[in-house]
Design a protein around this nucleic acid. Sequence first.
DNA 1: GAGTGGTCTAGACCACTAA
DNA 2: TAGTGGTCTAGACCACTCA
Lengths: 248, 248
Amino acid sequence: MIEWVLVMKMRNKYIQIYKDIVDDITKATYQPQTLLPSEHELMDKYGTSRETIRKALTLLAQNGFIQKVQGKGSIVLDTPRFDFPISGLVSFKELANQLGENHKTIVEKLELLPPTEDMKGILQIDSSEEMVWEVQRVREIDDEKIILDKDYIKSSKVEKLSREVCASSIYEYIEGELGLTISFAKKEITVEEPTKEDRNLLDLEGFSNVVVVKNYVYLEDASIFQYTESRHRPDKFRFVDFARRTKN
Amino acid sequence: MIEWVLVMKMRNKYIQIYKDIVDDITKATYQPQTLLPSEHELMDKYGTSRETIRKALTLLAQNGFIQKVQGKGSIVLDTPRFDFPISGLVSFKELANQLGENHKTIVEKLELLPPTEDMKGILQIDSSEEMVWEVQRVREIDDEKIILDKDYIKSSKVEKLSREVCASSIYEYIEGELGLTISFAKKEITVEEPTKEDRNLLDLEGFSNVVVVKNYVYLEDASIFQYTESRHRPDKFRFVDFARRTKN
DNA sequence: GAGTGGTCTAGACCACTAA
DNA sequence: TAGTGGTCTAGACCACTCA
Protein backbone atom coordinates (compact mmCIF):
# COMPACT_ATOMS: atom_id res chain seq x y z
CA MET A 1 0.00 0.00 0.00
CA ILE A 2 1.19 3.38 -0.92
CA GLU A 3 0.33 6.49 1.03
CA TRP A 4 0.50 9.77 -0.73
CA VAL A 5 1.40 12.46 1.66
CA LEU A 6 1.03 16.02 0.57
CA VAL A 7 3.82 17.95 2.15
CA MET A 8 2.97 21.59 2.18
CA LYS A 9 5.87 23.89 1.87
CA MET A 10 5.25 25.86 5.00
CA ARG A 11 6.84 29.16 4.71
CA ASN A 12 6.09 31.28 7.72
CA LYS A 13 6.20 28.58 10.31
CA TYR A 14 5.55 31.13 13.04
CA ILE A 15 2.33 32.23 11.35
CA GLN A 16 1.13 28.63 11.17
CA ILE A 17 1.87 28.26 14.88
CA TYR A 18 0.12 31.55 15.56
CA LYS A 19 -3.01 30.40 13.73
CA ASP A 20 -2.91 27.05 15.46
CA ILE A 21 -2.83 28.68 18.88
CA VAL A 22 -5.54 31.18 17.89
CA ASP A 23 -7.69 28.15 17.06
CA ASP A 24 -6.95 26.57 20.40
CA ILE A 25 -7.88 29.79 22.17
CA THR A 26 -11.12 30.39 20.29
CA LYS A 27 -12.11 26.76 20.78
CA ALA A 28 -11.25 27.21 24.47
CA THR A 29 -8.72 24.38 24.37
CA TYR A 30 -6.65 26.99 26.15
CA GLN A 31 -8.96 28.54 28.75
CA PRO A 32 -9.11 32.28 29.46
CA GLN A 33 -7.12 33.48 32.47
CA THR A 34 -4.97 30.34 32.41
CA LEU A 35 -1.37 30.03 31.23
CA LEU A 36 -0.33 28.89 27.79
CA PRO A 37 2.27 26.09 27.73
CA SER A 38 5.74 27.55 28.28
CA GLU A 39 7.90 28.52 25.36
CA HIS A 40 10.05 25.46 25.98
CA GLU A 41 7.04 23.15 25.87
CA LEU A 42 5.80 24.82 22.69
CA MET A 43 9.26 24.28 21.15
CA ASP A 44 8.83 20.57 21.74
CA LYS A 45 5.23 20.52 20.58
CA TYR A 46 5.98 22.27 17.30
CA GLY A 47 9.53 21.00 16.88
CA THR A 48 11.03 24.41 16.28
CA SER A 49 13.39 26.90 17.81
CA ARG A 50 12.55 29.21 20.65
CA GLU A 51 12.79 32.43 18.62
CA THR A 52 10.20 31.08 16.19
CA ILE A 53 7.83 30.25 19.04
CA ARG A 54 8.47 33.70 20.43
CA LYS A 55 7.51 35.31 17.12
CA ALA A 56 4.19 33.48 17.19
CA LEU A 57 3.60 34.54 20.81
CA THR A 58 4.49 38.15 20.02
CA LEU A 59 1.87 38.11 17.28
CA LEU A 60 -0.69 36.68 19.68
CA ALA A 61 0.09 39.41 22.21
CA GLN A 62 -0.11 42.16 19.58
CA ASN A 63 -3.52 40.94 18.50
CA GLY A 64 -4.86 40.79 22.02
CA PHE A 65 -5.04 37.02 22.49
CA ILE A 66 -2.49 36.68 25.25
CA GLN A 67 -0.58 38.76 27.73
CA LYS A 68 3.05 37.81 28.35
CA VAL A 69 4.36 38.15 31.89
CA GLN A 70 8.05 37.70 32.55
CA GLY A 71 8.84 34.93 34.98
CA LYS A 72 5.30 33.63 34.91
CA GLY A 73 4.11 32.77 31.42
CA SER A 74 1.60 33.80 28.80
CA ILE A 75 -1.91 34.46 30.09
CA VAL A 76 -4.81 33.68 27.77
CA LEU A 77 -7.13 36.69 27.54
CA ASP A 78 -10.87 36.64 27.19
CA THR A 79 -11.27 40.18 25.95
CA PRO A 80 -13.74 39.31 23.25
CA ARG A 81 -12.25 40.29 19.95
CA PHE A 82 -15.35 39.54 17.90
CA ASP A 83 -16.96 42.84 18.85
CA PHE A 84 -14.31 44.98 17.19
CA PRO A 85 -16.31 46.36 14.30
CA ILE A 86 -14.44 49.21 12.65
CA SER A 87 -11.07 48.87 14.28
CA GLY A 88 -8.08 48.84 12.01
CA LEU A 89 -8.51 48.63 8.29
CA VAL A 90 -11.97 47.08 8.14
CA SER A 91 -14.15 48.14 5.21
CA PHE A 92 -17.88 48.75 5.16
CA LYS A 93 -18.57 45.39 3.57
CA GLU A 94 -16.83 43.53 6.36
CA LEU A 95 -18.59 45.71 8.90
CA ALA A 96 -22.01 45.07 7.43
CA ASN A 97 -21.31 41.34 7.23
CA GLN A 98 -20.37 41.31 10.88
CA LEU A 99 -23.49 43.18 11.87
CA GLY A 100 -25.48 40.72 9.77
CA GLU A 101 -27.97 43.35 8.79
CA ASN A 102 -29.70 44.13 5.56
CA HIS A 103 -27.33 46.43 3.82
CA LYS A 104 -27.11 48.12 0.47
CA THR A 105 -24.69 50.48 -1.20
CA ILE A 106 -25.87 53.26 -3.51
CA VAL A 107 -23.24 54.77 -5.78
CA GLU A 108 -24.12 58.47 -6.02
CA LYS A 109 -21.09 59.60 -7.93
CA LEU A 110 -18.18 58.11 -9.89
CA GLU A 111 -16.03 60.55 -11.81
CA LEU A 112 -12.45 61.06 -12.84
CA LEU A 113 -11.61 64.71 -12.21
CA PRO A 114 -8.63 67.01 -11.85
CA PRO A 115 -7.83 67.38 -8.16
CA THR A 116 -8.56 70.48 -6.12
CA GLU A 117 -5.60 72.19 -4.47
CA ASP A 118 -6.60 70.69 -1.11
CA MET A 119 -6.69 67.22 -2.56
CA LYS A 120 -3.32 67.73 -4.26
CA GLY A 121 -1.88 68.33 -0.82
CA ILE A 122 -3.63 65.44 0.83
CA LEU A 123 -2.77 62.91 -1.87
CA GLN A 124 0.76 64.27 -2.39
CA ILE A 125 0.24 64.99 -6.08
CA ASP A 126 3.00 66.88 -7.87
CA SER A 127 2.28 66.19 -11.53
CA SER A 128 -0.20 68.47 -13.25
CA GLU A 129 -1.55 65.55 -15.28
CA GLU A 130 -2.63 63.24 -12.49
CA MET A 131 -6.37 62.85 -12.09
CA VAL A 132 -8.38 61.74 -9.09
CA TRP A 133 -11.32 59.37 -8.88
CA GLU A 134 -14.14 60.89 -6.87
CA VAL A 135 -16.60 58.35 -5.54
CA GLN A 136 -19.59 58.97 -3.34
CA ARG A 137 -21.46 56.08 -1.84
CA VAL A 138 -24.41 55.97 0.50
CA ARG A 139 -24.63 52.99 2.86
CA GLU A 140 -28.07 51.81 3.74
CA ILE A 141 -28.70 49.53 6.70
CA ASP A 142 -32.23 48.29 7.39
CA ASP A 143 -33.57 50.73 4.78
CA GLU A 144 -32.01 53.74 6.48
CA LYS A 145 -29.30 55.79 4.84
CA ILE A 146 -26.68 55.82 7.57
CA ILE A 147 -23.26 56.50 6.11
CA LEU A 148 -21.90 58.70 3.33
CA ASP A 149 -18.51 57.59 2.05
CA LYS A 150 -16.54 60.05 -0.05
CA ASP A 151 -13.48 58.47 -1.64
CA TYR A 152 -10.64 60.17 -3.50
CA ILE A 153 -8.27 57.78 -5.29
CA LYS A 154 -5.17 58.57 -7.33
CA SER A 155 -5.57 57.61 -10.99
CA SER A 156 -1.92 56.60 -11.16
CA LYS A 157 -2.68 53.77 -8.74
CA VAL A 158 -6.11 52.77 -10.03
CA GLU A 159 -6.67 53.36 -13.75
CA LYS A 160 -10.13 51.90 -14.12
CA LEU A 161 -13.06 51.89 -11.76
CA SER A 162 -16.65 50.82 -12.40
CA ARG A 163 -19.95 51.35 -10.65
CA GLU A 164 -20.13 47.60 -10.04
CA VAL A 165 -16.84 47.61 -8.21
CA CYS A 166 -17.91 50.61 -6.14
CA ALA A 167 -21.18 48.95 -5.26
CA SER A 168 -19.51 45.83 -3.90
CA SER A 169 -16.07 46.54 -2.51
CA ILE A 170 -13.35 48.81 -3.82
CA TYR A 171 -10.91 47.16 -1.42
CA GLU A 172 -11.54 43.67 -2.76
CA TYR A 173 -11.01 44.99 -6.30
CA ILE A 174 -7.81 46.81 -5.39
CA GLU A 175 -6.29 44.00 -3.36
CA GLY A 176 -7.71 41.15 -5.44
CA GLU A 177 -7.79 42.24 -9.09
CA LEU A 178 -5.10 44.88 -9.04
CA GLY A 179 -2.84 43.07 -6.60
CA LEU A 180 -2.09 46.15 -4.56
CA THR A 181 -1.54 45.74 -0.84
CA ILE A 182 -2.77 48.23 1.70
CA SER A 183 -0.32 48.38 4.55
CA PHE A 184 -1.38 51.12 6.89
CA ALA A 185 -3.92 53.86 7.43
CA LYS A 186 -4.30 56.92 9.57
CA LYS A 187 -7.76 57.64 10.91
CA GLU A 188 -9.07 60.84 12.40
CA ILE A 189 -12.45 60.98 14.11
CA THR A 190 -14.31 64.21 14.77
CA VAL A 191 -17.90 65.37 15.13
CA GLU A 192 -19.30 68.04 12.81
CA GLU A 193 -22.55 69.67 11.86
CA PRO A 194 -24.17 68.05 8.84
CA THR A 195 -23.61 69.76 5.50
CA LYS A 196 -26.39 70.24 2.97
CA GLU A 197 -24.96 67.26 1.14
CA ASP A 198 -25.23 65.14 4.26
CA ARG A 199 -28.84 66.19 4.73
CA ASN A 200 -29.66 65.45 1.10
CA LEU A 201 -28.09 62.04 0.95
CA LEU A 202 -28.60 60.63 4.45
CA ASP A 203 -31.64 60.08 6.68
CA LEU A 204 -30.75 62.70 9.25
CA GLU A 205 -34.11 63.96 10.50
CA GLY A 206 -33.66 65.17 14.04
CA PHE A 207 -29.88 64.71 14.12
CA SER A 208 -27.74 67.78 14.51
CA ASN A 209 -24.35 66.07 14.18
CA VAL A 210 -22.48 63.62 12.01
CA VAL A 211 -19.39 61.66 13.00
CA VAL A 212 -16.65 62.20 10.44
CA VAL A 213 -13.95 59.58 9.97
CA LYS A 214 -11.09 60.77 7.79
CA ASN A 215 -8.99 57.94 6.48
CA TYR A 216 -5.58 58.25 4.83
CA VAL A 217 -4.68 54.93 3.21
CA TYR A 218 -1.14 53.91 2.26
CA LEU A 219 0.27 51.10 0.15
CA GLU A 220 3.16 48.77 0.86
CA ASP A 221 5.72 51.15 -0.56
CA ALA A 222 4.51 53.86 1.84
CA SER A 223 2.89 55.95 -0.88
CA ILE A 224 -0.55 57.36 -0.17
CA PHE A 225 -3.15 56.22 -2.62
CA GLN A 226 -6.55 57.06 -1.21
CA TYR A 227 -8.30 59.52 1.04
CA THR A 228 -11.74 58.65 2.37
CA GLU A 229 -14.16 60.72 4.36
CA SER A 230 -16.80 58.62 6.01
CA ARG A 231 -19.76 60.54 7.42
CA HIS A 232 -21.87 58.60 9.93
CA ARG A 233 -25.23 59.21 11.52
CA PRO A 234 -24.24 59.50 15.18
CA ASP A 235 -26.69 56.99 16.66
CA LYS A 236 -25.28 54.14 14.57
CA PHE A 237 -21.65 55.00 15.02
CA ARG A 238 -19.34 52.79 17.04
CA PHE A 239 -15.57 52.57 17.03
CA VAL A 240 -13.52 50.11 19.03
CA ASP A 241 -9.82 50.36 19.60
CA PHE A 242 -7.40 48.01 21.30
CA ALA A 243 -4.34 49.86 22.56
CA ARG A 244 -1.30 48.10 23.89
CA ARG A 245 1.98 49.27 25.31
CA THR A 246 4.32 47.48 23.00
CA LYS A 247 7.92 46.99 23.85
CA ASN A 248 8.96 44.50 21.24
CA MET B 1 45.10 63.26 35.78
CA ILE B 2 42.33 60.79 36.33
CA GLU B 3 39.18 60.67 34.24
CA TRP B 4 36.09 59.09 35.71
CA VAL B 5 34.03 57.51 33.04
CA LEU B 6 30.51 56.47 33.86
CA VAL B 7 29.68 53.35 31.93
CA MET B 8 25.96 52.87 31.73
CA LYS B 9 24.78 49.32 31.77
CA MET B 10 22.69 49.38 28.63
CA ARG B 11 20.11 46.76 28.83
CA ASN B 12 17.75 46.88 25.89
CA LYS B 13 20.24 47.72 23.25
CA TYR B 14 17.53 47.60 20.60
CA ILE B 15 15.50 50.24 22.43
CA GLN B 16 18.53 52.53 22.55
CA ILE B 17 19.00 52.04 18.82
CA TYR B 18 15.28 52.65 18.28
CA LYS B 19 15.44 55.94 20.18
CA ASP B 20 18.57 56.97 18.37
CA ILE B 21 16.94 56.45 14.99
CA VAL B 22 13.74 58.19 16.13
CA ASP B 23 15.95 61.17 16.96
CA ASP B 24 17.55 61.05 13.54
CA ILE B 25 14.15 60.93 11.89
CA THR B 26 12.60 63.76 13.90
CA LYS B 27 15.71 65.88 13.33
CA ALA B 28 15.43 65.01 9.63
CA THR B 29 18.91 63.53 9.56
CA TYR B 30 17.06 60.77 7.80
CA GLN B 31 14.77 62.50 5.31
CA PRO B 32 11.15 61.47 4.72
CA GLN B 33 10.55 59.25 1.67
CA THR B 34 14.21 58.23 1.58
CA LEU B 35 15.70 54.91 2.62
CA LEU B 36 17.23 54.21 5.99
CA PRO B 37 20.72 52.65 5.91
CA SER B 38 20.46 48.92 5.26
CA GLU B 39 20.32 46.49 8.17
CA HIS B 40 23.88 45.45 7.39
CA GLU B 41 25.11 49.05 7.54
CA LEU B 42 23.25 49.62 10.79
CA MET B 43 24.92 46.49 12.21
CA ASP B 44 28.28 48.10 11.52
CA LYS B 45 27.20 51.50 12.82
CA TYR B 46 25.91 50.15 16.12
CA GLY B 47 28.27 47.19 16.38
CA THR B 48 25.56 44.66 17.03
CA SER B 49 23.88 41.65 15.48
CA ARG B 50 21.34 41.78 12.72
CA GLU B 51 18.43 40.47 14.84
CA THR B 52 18.96 43.29 17.30
CA ILE B 53 18.88 45.86 14.51
CA ARG B 54 15.77 44.19 13.19
CA LYS B 55 14.05 44.48 16.58
CA ALA B 56 14.71 48.21 16.56
CA LEU B 57 13.40 48.52 13.00
CA THR B 58 10.29 46.49 13.84
CA LEU B 59 9.58 48.92 16.68
CA LEU B 60 10.03 51.86 14.32
CA ALA B 61 7.61 50.29 11.85
CA GLN B 62 5.02 49.54 14.54
CA ASN B 63 5.13 53.12 15.71
CA GLY B 64 4.72 54.52 12.24
CA PHE B 65 8.22 55.93 11.68
CA ILE B 66 9.26 53.69 8.83
CA GLN B 67 7.81 51.27 6.33
CA LYS B 68 9.85 48.15 5.57
CA VAL B 69 9.83 46.89 1.99
CA GLN B 70 11.42 43.56 1.19
CA GLY B 71 14.21 43.75 -1.32
CA LYS B 72 14.29 47.51 -1.15
CA GLY B 73 14.86 48.82 2.32
CA SER B 74 13.17 50.82 5.06
CA ILE B 75 11.37 53.95 3.90
CA VAL B 76 11.26 56.89 6.30
CA LEU B 77 7.67 58.12 6.69
CA ASP B 78 6.58 61.68 7.14
CA THR B 79 3.16 60.96 8.56
CA PRO B 80 3.40 63.50 11.32
CA ARG B 81 3.08 61.66 14.57
CA PHE B 82 2.98 64.75 16.74
CA ASP B 83 -0.68 65.29 15.98
CA PHE B 84 -1.81 62.05 17.57
CA PRO B 85 -3.58 63.44 20.59
CA ILE B 86 -5.60 60.72 22.29
CA SER B 87 -4.34 57.67 20.48
CA GLY B 88 -3.30 54.77 22.63
CA LEU B 89 -3.12 55.11 26.36
CA VAL B 90 -2.65 58.85 26.65
CA SER B 91 -4.20 60.55 29.68
CA PHE B 92 -5.91 63.91 29.87
CA LYS B 93 -2.87 65.54 31.42
CA GLU B 94 -0.65 64.54 28.51
CA LEU B 95 -3.34 65.62 26.08
CA ALA B 96 -3.73 69.02 27.69
CA ASN B 97 0.04 69.49 27.76
CA GLN B 98 0.22 68.71 24.08
CA LEU B 99 -2.52 71.14 23.26
CA GLY B 100 -0.73 73.73 25.35
CA GLU B 101 -3.97 75.29 26.51
CA ASN B 102 -5.10 76.60 29.84
CA HIS B 103 -6.49 73.58 31.57
CA LYS B 104 -7.92 72.79 34.95
CA THR B 105 -9.38 69.71 36.59
CA ILE B 106 -12.30 69.91 39.02
CA VAL B 107 -12.86 66.88 41.23
CA GLU B 108 -16.62 66.60 41.60
CA LYS B 109 -16.73 63.31 43.43
CA LEU B 110 -14.36 60.94 45.21
CA GLU B 111 -15.97 58.07 47.10
CA LEU B 112 -15.35 54.46 47.99
CA LEU B 113 -18.60 52.60 47.43
CA PRO B 114 -19.90 49.08 47.01
CA PRO B 115 -20.15 48.32 43.29
CA THR B 116 -23.40 48.14 41.38
CA GLU B 117 -24.20 44.86 39.65
CA ASP B 118 -23.20 46.35 36.29
CA MET B 119 -19.87 47.46 37.65
CA LYS B 120 -19.25 44.02 39.21
CA GLY B 121 -19.54 42.58 35.73
CA ILE B 122 -17.37 45.18 34.08
CA LEU B 123 -14.60 45.04 36.69
CA GLN B 124 -14.81 41.24 37.09
CA ILE B 125 -15.53 41.41 40.81
CA ASP B 126 -16.41 38.13 42.55
CA SER B 127 -15.85 38.93 46.22
CA SER B 128 -18.70 40.55 48.09
CA GLU B 129 -16.27 42.68 50.10
CA GLU B 130 -14.48 44.46 47.28
CA MET B 131 -15.26 48.16 47.03
CA VAL B 132 -14.92 50.51 44.09
CA TRP B 133 -13.55 54.04 43.94
CA GLU B 134 -15.91 56.33 42.09
CA VAL B 135 -14.27 59.49 40.80
CA GLN B 136 -15.85 62.21 38.75
CA ARG B 137 -13.72 64.93 37.25
CA VAL B 138 -14.59 67.84 35.02
CA ARG B 139 -11.92 69.02 32.62
CA GLU B 140 -11.84 72.68 31.84
CA ILE B 141 -9.97 74.06 28.83
CA ASP B 142 -9.87 77.82 28.25
CA ASP B 143 -12.51 78.30 30.98
CA GLU B 144 -14.95 75.95 29.32
CA LYS B 145 -16.03 72.69 30.90
CA ILE B 146 -15.38 70.28 28.05
CA ILE B 147 -14.95 66.76 29.40
CA LEU B 148 -16.54 64.74 32.17
CA ASP B 149 -14.41 61.77 33.28
CA LYS B 150 -16.09 59.09 35.36
CA ASP B 151 -13.60 56.60 36.79
CA TYR B 152 -14.29 53.32 38.56
CA ILE B 153 -11.25 51.72 40.19
CA LYS B 154 -10.99 48.47 42.13
CA SER B 155 -10.06 49.03 45.78
CA SER B 156 -8.01 45.84 45.75
CA LYS B 157 -5.63 47.50 43.30
CA VAL B 158 -5.65 51.02 44.69
CA GLU B 159 -6.24 51.27 48.44
CA LYS B 160 -5.88 54.98 48.92
CA LEU B 161 -6.83 57.87 46.69
CA SER B 162 -6.87 61.58 47.45
CA ARG B 163 -8.43 64.64 45.86
CA GLU B 164 -4.93 65.95 45.17
CA VAL B 165 -4.03 62.87 43.19
CA CYS B 166 -7.28 63.05 41.25
CA ALA B 167 -6.70 66.70 40.47
CA SER B 168 -3.27 66.10 38.95
CA SER B 169 -3.00 62.65 37.41
CA ILE B 170 -4.29 59.33 38.67
CA TYR B 171 -2.08 57.57 36.16
CA GLU B 172 1.10 59.18 37.43
CA TYR B 173 0.15 58.17 40.97
CA ILE B 174 -0.65 54.61 39.98
CA GLU B 175 2.40 54.07 37.81
CA GLY B 176 4.78 56.21 39.85
CA GLU B 177 3.85 55.83 43.53
CA LEU B 178 2.13 52.48 43.45
CA GLY B 179 4.44 50.94 40.88
CA LEU B 180 1.65 49.37 38.88
CA THR B 181 2.06 49.08 35.13
CA ILE B 182 -0.78 49.58 32.71
CA SER B 183 -0.30 47.29 29.77
CA PHE B 184 -3.33 47.56 27.55
CA ALA B 185 -6.73 49.16 27.19
CA LYS B 186 -9.82 48.65 25.15
CA LYS B 187 -11.60 51.80 23.97
CA GLU B 188 -15.10 52.13 22.64
CA ILE B 189 -16.32 55.36 21.09
CA THR B 190 -19.99 56.18 20.60
CA VAL B 191 -22.18 59.28 20.44
CA GLU B 192 -25.04 59.75 22.90
CA GLU B 193 -27.54 62.34 24.01
CA PRO B 194 -26.36 64.26 27.06
CA THR B 195 -27.70 63.10 30.41
CA LYS B 196 -28.87 65.57 33.06
CA GLU B 197 -25.54 65.01 34.77
CA ASP B 198 -23.70 66.00 31.57
CA ARG B 199 -25.82 69.14 31.29
CA ASN B 200 -25.22 70.04 34.93
CA LEU B 201 -21.48 69.55 34.93
CA LEU B 202 -20.43 70.57 31.40
CA ASP B 203 -20.89 73.69 29.29
CA LEU B 204 -23.23 72.15 26.75
CA GLU B 205 -25.47 75.01 25.68
CA GLY B 206 -26.65 74.32 22.19
CA PHE B 207 -25.08 70.87 21.93
CA SER B 208 -27.38 67.91 21.53
CA ASN B 209 -24.73 65.19 21.66
CA VAL B 210 -21.75 64.07 23.69
CA VAL B 211 -19.00 61.75 22.52
CA VAL B 212 -18.59 58.88 24.96
CA VAL B 213 -15.26 57.09 25.24
CA LYS B 214 -15.44 53.94 27.33
CA ASN B 215 -12.08 52.74 28.47
CA TYR B 216 -11.29 49.34 29.99
CA VAL B 217 -7.80 49.43 31.47
CA TYR B 218 -5.72 46.33 32.24
CA LEU B 219 -2.54 45.78 34.22
CA GLU B 220 0.54 43.74 33.33
CA ASP B 221 -0.91 40.53 34.69
CA ALA B 222 -3.95 40.93 32.42
CA SER B 223 -6.33 41.76 35.27
CA ILE B 224 -8.73 44.65 34.75
CA PHE B 225 -8.32 47.40 37.27
CA GLN B 226 -10.20 50.43 36.03
CA TYR B 227 -13.15 51.43 33.91
CA THR B 228 -13.40 55.01 32.71
CA GLU B 229 -16.17 56.76 30.89
CA SER B 230 -15.04 59.97 29.29
CA ARG B 231 -17.80 62.25 28.06
CA HIS B 232 -16.70 64.94 25.59
CA ARG B 233 -18.34 67.99 24.17
CA PRO B 234 -18.49 67.09 20.48
CA ASP B 235 -16.89 70.22 19.04
CA LYS B 236 -13.67 69.67 20.97
CA PHE B 237 -13.42 65.97 20.39
CA ARG B 238 -10.72 64.51 18.20
CA PHE B 239 -9.39 60.98 18.05
CA VAL B 240 -6.53 59.82 15.88
CA ASP B 241 -5.66 56.24 15.17
CA PHE B 242 -2.79 54.68 13.30
CA ALA B 243 -3.69 51.24 11.98
CA ARG B 244 -1.13 48.93 10.49
CA ARG B 245 -1.30 45.49 8.98
CA THR B 246 1.25 43.74 11.13
CA LYS B 247 2.81 40.51 10.09
CA ASN B 248 5.65 40.23 12.53
C1' DG C 1 16.75 27.29 43.12
C1' DA C 2 13.94 25.84 39.28
C1' DG C 3 11.32 27.61 35.74
C1' DT C 4 9.65 31.36 33.21
C1' DG C 5 10.08 34.98 29.64
C1' DG C 6 13.63 38.89 27.70
C1' DT C 7 17.79 39.94 25.21
C1' DC C 8 21.56 39.02 22.14
C1' DT C 9 24.65 36.56 19.00
C1' DA C 10 26.60 34.46 14.53
C1' DG C 11 25.38 32.29 10.92
C1' DA C 12 22.42 30.08 7.40
C1' DC C 13 19.14 30.10 3.66
C1' DC C 14 15.19 32.20 1.24
C1' DA C 15 12.31 35.84 -1.32
C1' DC C 16 12.14 40.04 -3.38
C1' DT C 17 13.91 44.31 -5.99
C1' DA C 18 16.51 46.67 -9.19
C1' DA C 19 20.19 47.41 -12.39
C1' DT D 1 23.49 39.26 -10.13
C1' DA D 2 24.22 41.97 -6.04
C1' DG D 3 21.91 43.82 -2.33
C1' DT D 4 17.96 44.12 0.37
C1' DG D 5 14.79 42.45 3.98
C1' DG D 6 12.30 37.80 5.90
C1' DT D 7 12.72 33.47 8.30
C1' DC D 8 14.92 30.15 11.19
C1' DT D 9 18.36 27.93 14.18
C1' DA D 10 21.12 26.65 18.52
C1' DG D 11 22.91 28.44 22.11
C1' DA D 12 24.12 31.86 25.67
C1' DC D 13 23.16 34.81 29.52
C1' DC D 14 19.99 37.81 32.15
C1' DA D 15 15.70 39.28 34.91
C1' DC D 16 11.79 37.98 37.04
C1' DT D 17 8.33 34.93 39.77
C1' DC D 18 7.23 31.65 43.00
C1' DA D 19 7.63 27.95 46.06
